[in-house]
Simulated scan of single mutants.
Amino acid sequence: MIVGAWCGLPYLTRSDLVTDLCQQLSSEFGRGQASFHSEQNDGEAWLIAEGGAVIRWWISEYPELALGEPFGVERRLLDAFGISGKPEDLDPEDDLASSWAATWGDCDVPTVAAESSLDPRQIRPGTSASGIFLVADTV
């Protein structure tokens, strides 16, 4: 899991760097994740890579850039709205797209991260995790 302001996926100037890093980490350790969660309604973004390949990349402000198939909580929420496809394929002017977008509180980064690995809001000294957990200071 990559965390820190420097990896904000909505900042497109950093998206290639973050994508490459997640792919590299997933090649070496099985999975790499990066996410951006805003408490000020600046959007949600996540990137999950496995075995060197991106399996899902979603940026709420740039749905046209999405990669991969929705899974987990994202897929379940789409199903609940009767959306069989992907959110990035919805017409933003459509009522269904507006209804879906209004539900982001049910499909935010902490929820996606918790389902995929660890909820970043719950990481504290002594938090246990399976597998390899790397910590790096980017200062």
Rank of each mutant, 00 (worst) to 15 (best):
E61A: 13
Q23T: 07
Y62D: 11
W57G: 00
L17R: 15
S117D: 07
L134T: 00
Q24H: 12
A129T: 05
L65I: 02
G82N: 12
I2H: 03
W46T: 03
R124V: 15
L12E: 10
P110Q: 07
G32M: 08
D42Y: 04
I48D: 02
G30Y: 03
L47C: 10
L78Y: 13
G43F: 14
T13W: 04
F81G: 13
P63C: 12
Q40W: 12
C107I: 04
T111G: 04
P110M: 04
S98L: 08
T138G: 02
G4L: 05
V73M: 07
L47S: 05
T103K: 13
W100H: 03
A53M: 11
E88R: 14
A129R: 05
S26L: 06
C7K: 14
S27A: 11
T138M: 10
A97D: 06
H37G: 09
L78Q: 09
G72F: 07
N41Y: 10
A34V: 12
E88C: 15
T19E: 13
T111V: 04
E64L: 05
S15V: 15
L9P: 08
E39Q: 11
S27G: 06
R14A: 12
I48Q: 04
E39V: 08
L25G: 09
D119K: 00
D95T: 12
S128T: 14
G4D: 06
P120A: 05
C22P: 00
A80F: 06
A80P: 01
E69R: 03
R31L: 07
E28P: 02
L47F: 10
L90Y: 05
D106P: 01
A101M: 12
G51L: 02
L134I: 09
L65W: 13
F36G: 13
G30Q: 05
T127I: 08
M1F: 14
P110T: 01
D95F: 05
I123T: 11
D79K: 01
Q24N: 07
D20T: 11
P110F: 01
E44P: 07
S26H: 06
V54I: 14
S117M: 01
G82T: 07
Q23D: 02
G52A: 01
S99T: 12
D16A: 14
L118G: 04
G51Q: 07
C107Q: 05
Q122E: 15
Q122T: 15
L65A: 06
V54H: 08
G72L: 09
F29L: 15
G105R: 08
L17A: 14
S116M: 06
D137R: 02
L96G: 06
A53I: 02
L65T: 03
T103N: 14
S84F: 01
E39F: 05
P120Q: 09
P70S: 10
S60C: 11
A53C: 08
S128V: 10
A129W: 06
